[in-house]
Design a protein around this nucleic acid. Structure first.
Length: 213
DNA sequence: TTGTGATCATCT
DNA sequence: AGATGATCACAA
């Protein structure tokens, strides 16, 4: 936490220099750059692991793009979904719950007028779901997974879920992955992932920093 | 090829 | 403006 908090106020250019990496020439084409930069700065071993970023601490690291008012600009990716196996995975044993059990959020000031190099890192904050928040997440999870188990994945849109939603996650819309239909027979679908809605992380931010409105 | 890092681009 | 569906780069 001390190391994470010490990053507050640094621009992306300053942090990249400290870490010894070059800023991308075309940031819009390297969407994961900021996330990987912070991982390097804080010593995350492997960014492609299916477990938490800091396994010893049980902590998942997430950057969170925020606007000038401190509101999240985007949803937050949680994890990929195995459409065949998730039907048999309850909330308690889910990868979603595991990843969200403790999250180190790093707000990044991000808006149109602010050049990439000049964007600043905000104050890190460590979040674990309150009982109420976990209830909301569990409800969404059960709803979403229930629909997958019912073979409704191809009809499942992103509006389902109060705090957490399921959205496509692939290189392009032509990618398919294995799924099951209502009878449990093999089928195919667009790959999906769980995301936290910006409205949900925004509420977490307000609670953490007691922002007005 | 798959999963993680996300933001982009368009529609409502 | 906010949300949804699509897309881009990287690592193992």
């Amino acid at each position: 936490m001390k190391r994470a908090l010490a990053l507050a106020g640094l621009t992306l250019a300053e942090l990249a220099q400290r870490v010894g990496v070059a800023l991308p020439a075309e940031p819009r084409r390297d969407k994961g750059f900021v996330g990987r930069l912070l991982e390097r700065a804080l010593g995350v071993k492997s960014s492609a692991s299916a477990v938490q970023d800091f396994p010893e601490l049980g902590i998942e690291l997430k950057t969170l793009p925020v606007d000038a008012q401190g509101k999240p600009r985007e949803s937050t990716f949680v994890c990929h979904v195995d459409l065949v196996r998730i039907a048999d995975c309850d909330w308690e044993r889910s990868r979603v719950r595991h990843k969200l059990s403790r999250v180190l959020f790093l707000p990044i000031e991000t808006h149109r007028e602010l050049p990439f190099a000049q964007r600043r890192i905000g104050s890190a904050w460590l979040w674990s779901p309150s009982a109420d928040e976990e209830n909301v997440l569990r409800h969404d999870y059960d709803d979403l997974v229930g629909r997958i188990a019912a073979g409704e994945i191809n009809e499942l849109r992103a509006h389902v879920g109060q705090a957490m939603q399921l959205r496509p996650k692939a290189a392009h819309a032509g990618v398919r992955t294995r799924s099951n239909d209502a009878e449990g027979a093999p089928a195919s679908a667009h790959p999906r992932a769980f995301y936290l809605r910006a409205s949900f992380t925004g509420a977490l931010l307000q609670r953490a920093f007691a922002l007005p409105e």
